[in-house]
Deep mutational scan, measured.
Amino acid sequence: GFTKEQQRLGIPKDPRQWTETHVRDWVMWAVNEFSLKGVDFQKFCMNGAALCALGKDCFLELAPDFVGDILWEHLEILQKE
């Protein structure tokens, strides 16, 4: 899971503390893990605080249908851990 990747890359547990690099690493991991298609990494050029502050509607505009939902749900789980 993502926990191993977080440990390997030194990504903080709390997504709100992520840098732009951490956000990119997470999106890249999720794309590979969940076989997601059509993700534009440029749209995720922000730090974790900005990403978490978007709200669901704005977040879902960053990625194609269903893909955004998967990313959003995973981000929500990470914020609760």
Results as ranks from 00 to 15, higher is better:
52 C>K: 03
61 E>H: 10
46 M>E: 00
48 G>C: 01
36 L>A: 04
67 V>S: 14
4 K>V: 10
20 E>N: 09
57 D>G: 10
19 T>M: 05
67 V>D: 08
9 L>E: 06
41 F>R: 10
58 C>H: 15
9 L>F: 07
2 F>A: 06
38 G>L: 04
13 K>W: 09
34 F>E: 04
37 K>Q: 14
67 V>G: 13
42 Q>M: 07
73 E>M: 06
15 P>Y: 00
75 L>N: 02
56 K>T: 01
74 H>N: 12
16 R>K: 12
37 K>F: 07
67 V>P: 12
45 C>N: 15
38 G>D: 12
20 E>G: 06
64 P>L: 01
49 A>E: 14
65 D>V: 12
28 M>P: 01
70 I>Q: 12
32 N>Q: 14
13 K>N: 14
78 L>N: 02
6 Q>C: 09
71 L>C: 01
43 K>G: 06
64 P>H: 05
57 D>R: 11
43 K>L: 05
60 L>C: 10
68 G>E: 00
31 V>M: 11
3 T>L: 11
40 D>E: 11
43 K>P: 06
39 V>A: 04
49 A>P: 08
51 L>R: 02
43 K>S: 08
73 E>T: 07
33 E>W: 08
15 P>T: 04
7 Q>V: 13
2 F>N: 08
66 F>P: 15
4 K>L: 10
11 I>N: 06
27 V>Y: 00
55 G>N: 15
35 S>V: 05
6 Q>K: 08
14 D>S: 05
27 V>R: 01
21 T>L: 11
53 A>S: 14
56 K>P: 04
35 S>H: 10
12 P>W: 02
59 F>E: 00
45 C>P: 05
14 D>T: 03
54 L>K: 09
23 V>L: 02
69 D>R: 10
42 Q>P: 07
75 L>I: 07
57 D>V: 10
16 R>L: 13
61 E>N: 13
77 I>P: 05
42 Q>V: 05
60 L>Y: 11
51 L>M: 09
10 G>Y: 05
13 K>D: 11
9 L>R: 13
21 T>P: 07
73 E>R: 10
6 Q>M: 14
52 C>W: 03
5 E>T: 09
5 E>Q: 09
21 T>Y: 15
77 I>D: 12
5 E>A: 11
27 V>P: 01
62 L>D: 00
59 F>N: 04
6 Q>N: 08
2 F>S: 05
15 P>N: 02
26 W>D: 03
57 D>F: 06
72 W>P: 00
3 T>H: 11
39 V>S: 03
51 L>I: 08
77 I>W: 12
64 P>K: 03
40 D>P: 05
75 L>Q: 00
56 K>Y: 09
69 D>V: 10
8 R>E: 10
73 E>H: 05
